[in-house]
Amino acid sequence: MQKDVDAWLAHALAAHRGHYADPAVRAAAADLRTTHLLAHAALLTELANLAPGAGVDQLASAARLAAADPEATGDLAAFLARAWSGQS
């Protein structure tokens, strides 16, 4: 059950939907959520930029990566964000 809740929260954070549409709420959530959940949300955000039509079920590997190594997942999300924006 917790895994499903974490996936839902990560997707809500990444998609900026519902309660998390407000930037102030997202910022406040960053202080309350676990490292792996925030890494999962960051990676989902960047993967959605690369494949806008991808569904959450197609991005399940992001949750496994975040649970296994949140720091590396966050690094990957940052790398993808830089690549997406054209920065080196």
Rank of each mutant, 00 (worst) to 15 (best):
Q2C: 02
H16N: 08
L44S: 02
H11Q: 08
W84Y: 11
G18H: 04
R82P: 02
Q87D: 14
S88P: 04
A51H: 08
A78H: 13
D6R: 05
A41W: 06
G53W: 03
L9I: 14
Q87K: 09
L44K: 01
A68S: 12
H40P: 08
A12C: 13
H36Q: 08
L43C: 03
S61F: 15
V5S: 06
F79C: 05
A67M: 08
F79E: 10
F79Q: 08
Q58A: 11
D4M: 02
A51R: 11
Q87V: 03
T34E: 15
A14Q: 08
W8Q: 10
H19M: 09
D69L: 04
A10L: 05
L47Q: 12
G53D: 14
A24I: 01
L59T: 03
L44C: 06
D75I: 02
S61C: 10
G55H: 00
G86K: 01
R26N: 07
T34G: 15
K3Q: 14
R26Y: 08
V25D: 05
Q58R: 04
L65H: 08
E71K: 13
W84Q: 13
M1H: 09
L44A: 04
A14M: 10
A78R: 15
A27R: 15
G53R: 10
L50W: 14
D31L: 08
Y20N: 04
A10C: 07
A48D: 10
S61L: 14
L47A: 13
G86W: 01
A66D: 06
S61N: 13
A60K: 05
A63M: 13
H11S: 08
A42L: 11
Q2A: 12
A63L: 12
A29M: 14
G18A: 03
Q58W: 00
L44N: 01
A21G: 11
K3A: 15
A62Q: 11
P23G: 07
A39T: 02
H19S: 02
A51C: 04
A12D: 13
R26W: 06
G74H: 04
W8S: 04
A39C: 04
D75H: 08
A72R: 15
